[in-house]
Design a protein around this nucleic acid. Structure first.
Lengths: 195, 195
DNA sequence: CATTTAACTGAACGGGCGTTCGATTGAAAA
DNA sequence: TTTTCAATCGAACGCCCGTTCAGTTAAATG
């Protein structure tokens, strides 16, 4: 068997995904051609098909990877203690996880419409699972009298939109560092649901 | 001169824009062909060019129209009285304006990347103008001691993300009517910035 | 050194793209 | 009734698309 070590595929494979992620985040899936992705990687278009089945599953893989990473990281968040403390930790986690992943966030939110029904359902289930972690915190806080929230589901979706929206304007070279942004949003979120 | 009255152009023109808006909101600009838009209208693709210069300017027109409508409507909002009252009216306005315009909101936010530099700058300036109306309310409230906000600019962007996010999940056939949604968000927003 | 085969090239496939334009149509104007 | 021309058709333009695949290359194996 030839070339088990030193194989290029372990280099090219990730490069394909990285190039696709960057280009799709910037221009949208439909606006990016396989030839553009290939050029970014430095191969011909046909070579991409050593690493992907087709464009559709490339897109889905990017989104699924992002959501899996998110769920795994979110599972590590310490939600012990009272609801206000858990909410603060969740808020800080959400920001620090999403801010360095602008491309992934863009793709995972804007390319949902390009998924087929089956793949869409998978991504939505994962997103729902993440949302439920926040809603559980809110429900706990309401039950304990720490929070006053009219509708925990709507508030969950609202808070996630509030937090994820940061990726639309945050500039790492701008006047605010991540800690400052976290502090601002921790205040907004905790006050919004406070008793 | 023939056919000044009864001309089809006054019918077909708006139909082209309506079909383009619906299709682009659903599938994205790059994924929708001129032939698809034409089929929706009931003409051949070539006929579209009686009403548009090219695909780019069709997209821009849709976005510009939406932003103009928004600014005109926002200018009618009563912002007299104290800051908390103005904030509640702004919140209610934002929701009732955006909720029935899901397609316009989708297109105006997700197709920004498909605009050239000049057109992008125009849309962004209009959006900034709208945001500034909210920031002015926040600044007034902070100055009067009605609000406590660490950063009015960041809070403005956050609140708009919070409110606009409703269009991503609201279902007119769902369990909540617009009044209820407005009430929930008025509470969230006013508490978030409260002193 | 000879062999093997993973990785990649480069051409080709059928098809759809945005856009243009001469020909056609049919209702209002004369 | 004849003329006019706004509105539209329908074909064509050159180009790029996603994907396939026989052939080439070159590095690890034996």
């Amino acid at each position: 068997m030839a070339r088990k070590q030193g194989s290029h595929s372990e280099i090219t494979g990730p490069k394909v995904r990285a190039a696709a992620l960057r280009l799709i985040a910037r221009y949208g899936c439909a606006a990016v051609s396989m030839r553009q992705i290939a050029a970014e990687v430095g191969v011909q278009a046909g070579a991409l098909y050593n690493y992907i089945n087709d464009k559709q599953s490339l897109l889905f893989d990017l989104m699924e990877s992002h959501m899996k990473e998110l769920l795994e990281a979110a599972a590590q968040v310490d939600l012990s203690g009272d609801a206000p403390a858990a909410l603060e930790r969740f808020t800080r986690f959400h920001i620090q996880f999403h801010l360095p992943r602008r491309d992934q966030v863009f793709v995972s939110y804007m390319e949902l419409r390009n998924l087929n029904e089956e793949n869409f359902a998978k991504i939505e289930a994962m997103r729902r699972s993440y949302e439920d972690q926040l809603e559980t915190i809110l429900k706990t806080g309401v039950a304990n009298g720490d929070f006053v929230v009219t509708d925990t589901r709507v508030t969950t979706l609202g808070l996630i939109a509030l937090l994820t929206g940061i990726t639309n304007w945050y500039d790492p070279q701008g006047r605010l560092d991540i800690d400052t942004v976290q502090a601002i949003y921790v205040e907004l979120v905790s006050k919004a649901v406070a008793a």
